[in-house]
Design a protein around this nucleic acid. Sequence first.
DNA 1: TCTATTAATCGTATATTTGCGATATAGGAT
DNA 2: ATCCTATATCGCAAATATACGATTAATAGA
Lengths: 111, 111
Amino acid sequence: MAVNKKEVFTQKEQELAAFAKAMSHPARIAILKELAKRNECICGEIVDVLPLAQSTVSQHLKELKNAGLIDGTVDGPRSCYCINWKAFEKFFAEFSGLFTSLKIKNEKACC
Amino acid sequence: MAVNKKEVFTQKEQELAAFAKAMSHPARIAILKELAKRNECICGEIVDVLPLAQSTVSQHLKELKNAGLIDGTVDGPRSCYCINWKAFEKFFAEFSGLFTSLKIKNEKACC
DNA sequence: TCTATTAATCGTATATTTGCGATATAGGAT
DNA sequence: ATCCTATATCGCAAATATACGATTAATAGA
């Protein structure tokens, strides 16, 4: 029975996992690239660039937004998405921190 | 219907997503921490430390192994897991590279 | 040889993710 | 007011992930 056991882990572990999860689909990585490529926020073109249906892209955008990696403002007929650099950098810094702390703990080679 | 569309993205995007996916569960992050903590590879204790059933831990270990993040050698009754630092560093470097390239492309603030 | 121990694998139940078409919504243009 | 365009949301189907107990496999020790 797939009871969700995620809450038994530390807050930090959950945060890092959530960040990784947001990045865990090639479509979302492609979306982030597209968002970064354009300076202005005319973001409707993402649908044209990606080989996915409009509704699917919209869903991926929503997930990125829920994860806090991007901001989006609905503006009636069109909407505007862009990367939330502050949040993104924070997540990335945490992620780097994890990596570094793992390495420090493991100076001795093992296998 | 949920046809797997991952292959329409670039190799790199798929690799990065796969790495992120491996890190996208708090249990797997906790496992990596435990593996890093111990210098020797007596890794049966991971099951004791984590609040999960033995079979579940085994499954997470398998996924980390499939992703290439850890090595594991079965040794009869007990088995030995440890982080594959070479691969891990490679993945992390790629991930950092993505982050950096996103930032470079987006010097101008947008929203 | 028999038994205990350790860990992988199988089977199963449930939850979540992915994807799409259809529909709803919300402004802009005519 | 009516139509057009761009997006979000809904409903559904299929695939994957998560979790566990039971079983199997493999070896170490009595």
